[in-house]
């Protein structure tokens, strides 16, 4: 669906990304994981078109986005939704107004049709009856769900999530993860940037480990916890430890039963 080839980005003398290449497969949840400041969110901002890399190419459905004409580029952009870490909801607008704000055909739809769209999206994110509230009246988890509903308003094919569970309690984190899984069932591809191991385990069908602006490892979780790379070993230490405990308990169980 989206292919990044040799993407490099720097601010002044500070190198943010160096020759980053990977492919986001259709209907597969990709999780970009790494420590704070590794360059994860920069990748997301480049895919969303907020930042332009110094070098490299990005292909969307086989087309180089930097060679697209303006109308092609705008059409492509409408296929990508984004959920910011800070949610970026418009605080002067109600929940319904926030959800409908980016709807391209907003002006041509009747009030009844707009209400229907808003209610359907609120229902999808389990936030029925909150349309008249304002962002300041919502909890962190609720804001996140509204941000997801807003991103879904124009049926994007790809949704980018920047640290979707950071700062949320375990229950809210679980509900956001459930929502991302629900999106996959409805045919939307998700890219999740996170530094939380639980998100990686729960969501990652394709995991990209990034450190100091470069990809150090990629693949499924089973591959990562057996990786020889020292950084990956260190980053996934808790998972690897947990995996070893599980394996030794299983071996013990087998030994006892034999």
């Amino acid at each position: 669906m989206v292919e990044l080839k040799n993407i490099s980005l720097s601010f002044g003398e500070k190198l943010i990304l160096e020759n980053v290449s990977f492919t986001i497969e259709n209907n597969l949840t990709t999780v970009i994981v790494g420590p704070s400041g590794a360059g994860k969110s920069s990748i997301l901002k480049i895919i969303a078109g907020l930042w332009r890399p110094d070098s490299g190419e990005i292909f969307f459905n086989g087309k180089d986005i930097f060679k697209m004409c303006e109308s092609e580029y705008q059409t492509m952009r409408k296929k990508i939704g984004i959920v910011f870490q800070s949610n970026a909801l418009f605080d002067s607008l109600s929940v319904t107004e926030n959800i409908l704000y980016f709807l391209p055909e907003r002006k041509s739809l009747t009030d009844h049709e707009l209400k229907e769209i808003s209610e359907r999206l609120l229902n999808f994110v389990n936030m029925d009856g909150t349309g008249d509230l304002y962002p300041e009246e919502l909890s962190g988890g609720m804001k996140k769900r509204i941000a997801i509903a807003r991103a879904l308003a124009f049926n994007p094919k790809l949704i980018l999530f920047d640290e979707p569970t950071t700062g949320l309690d375990p229950l809210n984190s679980a509900s956001i993860i459930e929502l991302i899984e629900k999106l996959k069932e409805s045919g939307t591809t998700s890219v999740v940037v996170s530094h939380i191991l639980n998100d990686v385990v729960e969501l990652g069908e394709q995991i990209i480990v990034i450190n100091d602006g470069s990809i150090v490892e990629s693949g499924r979780i089973e591959k990562l916890i057996t990786s020889e790379d020292p950084f990956v070993n260190k980053f996934f230490y808790r998972l690897i430890k947990h995996d070893r405990i599980m394996k030794s308990s299983y071996n013990m169980y087998e030994l006892v039963n034999v």
Partner: peptide
């Protein structure tokens, strides 16, 4: 709006 990513949201949504 800039500090709370709302400007980025506008740009990202075209």
């Amino acid at each position: 709006m800039k500090l709370s990513d709302q400007i980025d949201a506008l740009t990202a949504f075209g």
